[in-house]
Amino acid sequence: MAETDDEWIRPLLSWAADKIEVEAVGRDELIAAGRARLARRRVLAGTALTAVLAFALGGYAIAEGVGGGGRPGHVAVTVSATAATSSAAPGTLPAPAVS
């Protein structure tokens, strides 16, 4: 246990903590707050996953030279999903669809 000399801090901590007023929270309010926070965490996780995928796709595009502007030594700032997923040959842009 704690040394006797250190015991003086114990009541001060209790007293400082007891200054916090805890409001009673209803069951529905509690569940709603928890679900809202979970939803926010999922959105944040989804955003982070999207950023990672975009970064990985960008790296792939640079390494393989696919997409517009993918020359060695240059960083392609934007990645065209159309170019990356089309059957166009590497280094070429897909021809626009003509109706």
Partner: peptide, 14 residues
């Protein structure tokens, strides 16, 4: 949560 929320809040405050 109803029983422990107050204690958790105080601990978090410290």
């Amino acid at each position: 949560v109803t029983a422990r929320r107050g204690g958790l809040l105080r601990e978090a405050y410290l």
